[in-house]
Simulated assay, not measured.
Amino acid sequence: MAVQTALVTGGASGMGRATVARLLDRGFDVVIADLNEEVADTALTELAQDGAGERVSFVRTDVSSEPDFEAAIARAVERHGTLDVLVNAAGVGGAFGPLTDIEVEDWDYTFDVLLRSVFIGLKHAGRVMRAQGTGGAIVNFGSIGAQAAGVGLQPYSVAKAGVEHLTRMAAYEYAPDNIRVNAVSPGIITTPLIGLTEADLQPLLGTVQPLPVAGVPDHVAGVVAFLVGEDARFITGEVVTVDGGIMAAGPQLRDLVNNNPALRGYVGVNRGSTGVKATIHKKLDVAEGSR
């Protein structure tokens, strides 16, 4: 089987950088499209030391610029012959503050980098993959901020919600050409973007995040590598949440409104407004029962 080529935006650091390493390990040639040349140079040096050699290269790219993105895709095809995979991992924290105070220019910048760039990538990668006639795989980066309010910054979260729905729209449109489009939705991951260390995350582990493991870029990169690989060849239009169970746990009210007897150690059944009283089978020590 011929070597496949992947273009990874934001591939110089964080989850993008981890994705580049994973894809190289899986035998892909990889082109890193990133705005930060200094960080990219460091990444290339480290990857070369790990044996990547000529299989990885860098092209400076402003992903919100259509000419820049189109040139990066052309570079990948020129250098390696095909474009088989696109990973839209580039991101910024974007605008922050109350909605009544956020500047329109800052809002637009956030959407340009997070959502406009994904559209541009889908547009031009789709054209190339369709012309090649051999299918392809695209993975976009969403966020758990897209799935509920109060999880992330407002402009960031709304833009990521757009990314996740655009993923479904593109998956539907590109399916006849065997181009699969999926997304990953990371939770709280230790990356330069959020500036948190594993130690910073300790108060969240086993509480807000049920899984008592700090999220690191490689957790997300592994899912991306799966989605672009042969084992996922029948998966398209999906958003895979990679968050240690944060969204599964829901709003985390716990027992703040005294509505969950299990969290106070009781075992039984609540029969609601049927007129039959609740049954309490036993009372556990809090340490023994559920959190």
Rank of each mutant, 00 (worst) to 15 (best):
A43Y: 03
A43Q: 05
A43E: 01
A43P: 02
A43H: 02
L44S: 00
T45A: 15
T45I: 14
L47W: 04
A48R: 13
D50P: 01
G51H: 13
A52K: 09
A52E: 07
A52P: 09
G53Y: 11
R55I: 06
V56T: 05
F58P: 00
F58A: 00
V59E: 05
R60N: 08
R60G: 10
R60E: 12
R60Y: 08
R60S: 13
T61Y: 07
T61E: 04
D62K: 04
S64M: 06
S65K: 02
P67G: 07
D68A: 12
F69A: 11
F69E: 00
E70P: 02
A72I: 04
A72Q: 07
I73S: 05
A74V: 07
A76Y: 04
A76I: 06
V77F: 13
V77I: 13
E78S: 15
E78D: 12
R79P: 03
R79A: 12
R79F: 08
H80S: 13
G81F: 09
T82P: 06
T82G: 11
D84N: 15
V85R: 02
N88T: 07
A89Y: 03
A89S: 13
A90C: 08
A90D: 00
G91Q: 03
V92L: 12
V92Q: 06
G93S: 09
G93V: 04
G94V: 06
A95P: 04
A95F: 10
